[in-house]
Design a protein around this nucleic acid. Structure first.
Lengths: 193, 193
DNA sequence: GTTGTATTTTGACAGTTGTCAATTATTTTA
DNA sequence: TAAAATAATTGACAACTGTCAAAATACAAC
């Protein structure tokens, strides 16, 4: 991003950001992400290309911003500290719940794009990153493990995303209890669980 | 890829593929992947752009092909079946060994690109994919686990890449035994290990 | 309200991308 | 070896990308 959205934004900047956000969201419901051009976004938002590049590096950058905007809703619900295992399961359940509550978003993500598309990769990458930060905070107090905390947090966030992807794309009709069972099984070691 | 490199290739096709492979490899040692253009590759290989597009969709596609070409060396060494845990550790050790033996490759990957760059993501994505196929074959006989085999294999390949990345970028002077310890700890459940 | 400053918007540009039908080279067959 | 068939190469094209310095707008202080 060319600007810092965590700082104070002028009315104009807010208006423009919103227009680009909505334009991308609309475009995503119409065609695959790789077919969407910056020109498409600019036509929809009625801004010239140069304005787009005042805010974003490219269309990937806008997508990233879109996820972070949507993601605020989920992240606010997650407790900032607590027990490791509980925290991990909690994050996972909130993510699963979020996608159940936003079926239409998931449909847009998969409609014109495969589950291996850039679109899902970009979103899951964002979620993994945010989960990683939260989990690192859960883990950093715990010095009893043999493994470096940063690696441990990475391991947990990878796991959450893996099970989430499984539930969304491979077994969409799964119930929460079974999903949690999968997660906890792997959390406690895949082999002997 | 526009052509199937597993099928028989004519002399001309082999010659051209090699030229593009070498051109990309050389370009990577000179600048960051995102700064490399198809034009650069074509200048180096002395082929016109249109020829490039007869073989590859884009520069990402060529990169993918480059990894698969380089990766043949590693993959051939890995036993095609065996015990789960042993197999996973074996794959991990071969990957670690490979990068120790090819320091200059790793340097090229990191020199003009961060560890979070497209370049490493592309390579690790390829390795994860290949590891996943091998591990799936190890696991598919084992019906005693609660978790779907496909998810289990995904979990293991994610884990291998996570520990590999840790060893290459966060703790480059790590010894193999410590690395294996990390891997096995996480394999047996991060929390109670 | 006017002035000056900072921010946002803009059109135009040079370079890059991916595709096409036409050309050239290579291999196969007779 | 010559003709036919197949495969590889090519230049030219239209569309897209990202950047710039100039213009327009919003905002603050007086």
């Amino acid at each position: 991003m060319k600007i810092d959205v965590t700082q104070h934004l002028t009315l104009g900047a807010k208006r423009t950001l919103k227009a680009f956000r909505l334009a991308m969201f609309e475009a995503l419901s119409e065609k695959g992400f790789d077919k969407i051009t910056v020109n498409d976004i600019c036509k929809k938002s009625e801004y010239p290309r140069a304005t787009f590049y005042n805010y974003f590096d490219d269309k990937f950058d806008l997508l990233q911003y879109l996820w972070s905007y949507i993601g605020k809703d989920i992240l606010d619900k997650i407790p900032k500290n607590g027990d490791e295992e509980d925290g991990i399961v909690k994050i996972f359940n909130l993510l699963l719940e979020f996608f159940n509550d936003h079926q239409e978003l998931l449909i847009n993500i998969t409609k014109n794009n495969g589950s291996d598309s850039h679109l899902w990769h970009s979103m899951s990458g964002y979620l993994r990153h945010e989960a990683n930060i939260l989990i690192y905070n859960y883990c950093k107090e715990n010095n009893q493990v043999k493994v470096p905390v940063k690696l441990l947090a990475r391991f947990y966030s990878d796991l959450i995303i893996a099970v989430l992807e499984w539930c969304l794309f491979e077994q969409p009709d799964i119930d929460v209890d079974t999903a949690d069972e999968y997660l906890i099984s792997l959390l406690n070691g895949g082999l002997n669980a």
